[in-house]
Amino acid sequence: MSAVTINENSLKDIMNSPDTTPLPAAVSVAEARPTPFLQTERGLAFAEAIGKFFRAVLPPILGIALFILLWQMVSVSGGESGLPGPAKTWESAKLLFADPFYDNGPNDKGIGWNILHSLYRVGAGFGLAALVGIPLGFMIGRFQFLSGMASPIISLLRPVSPLAWLPIGLYVFKETEPASLWVIFISSIWPIILNTAAGVSRVPQDYLNVARVLNLSEWKIFTRILFPSVLPHLMTGIRLSIGVAWLVIVAAEMLTGGTGLGFWVWDEWNNLNVEHILIAIFIVGIVGLLLEQVLVMIANRFNYE
């Protein structure tokens, strides 16, 4: 660094320091023209940070702006009966979120309630799937025989479209609430089972050798080696599974009615409130994105490599 890089702050430091004799030398320093801020070290760092910020933020903003523009064009080209435009939808959303938790009886609840209901169903259905799927995945991964038994059934049932399970649920449970949990359960259990099993069968031989050389008990093998080693795979399974559950819940609620985002979408369609349908799509997208982000964050905590 050259000796000239003295900015205002460091000048002040020099002036205020008790060692500085406030006479000739200091005066001459004060008279020297300070280097322009952007050429100082801090200035350069600042410029760099700004540049980085723009490179990271500019493309998404541009993308979103373009998307809104396209939306506007589509809505304008539709004329009177076209899709509501961004501005109109925004106004409607502001109204909707002004009071998200009102409750006027069973079929008229605030948007907040509907979101919470959908989230609750995803949580409950997924929780059941995890409760059953994780142990099952461990056993299938650990025992070749079980894997052989389970694989034809899993291969057969996994590609079935989630909603095809709904009638079975309705028939068995005679009620819509457990039926929609059942649909979430059955459609989100496969990623959990498969990823857990894959994780177990892929525990590095080195770690198992350590277990054998140390002669660890089955319990210690599970808690110290199998479980931590499978955890990243398990997290992937959970992420996929919650993703599927969130995809499915909206569709299931459209059919079962009552509460929830899916029900709300269908209800607003019956009211021909297209703005609300658009808002619902954004809500579903944003909540799904948030779920995914939280799970990725948790998963990264368990990454040891």
């Binding site: 080195d206 770690y207 050798n209 350590v210 054998r212 050389v213 140390l214 002669n215 660890l216 210690k220 110290r224 080696i225 931590p228 080693s229 040891y304 490599e305």
Partner: peptide, 28 residues
């Protein structure tokens, strides 16, 4: 089979990545 009376130092060290140095030794 292996037994605790035979201590092994593996060529690729084979430490468990989720345990600290202390945890790895403590396990044994």
């Amino acid at each position: 089979g292996p037994g605790p009376e035979r201590g092994v130092v593996f060529q690729n060290h084979s430490l468990l990545p989720w345990l600290t140095c202390f945890g790895n030794v403590y396990l044994a």
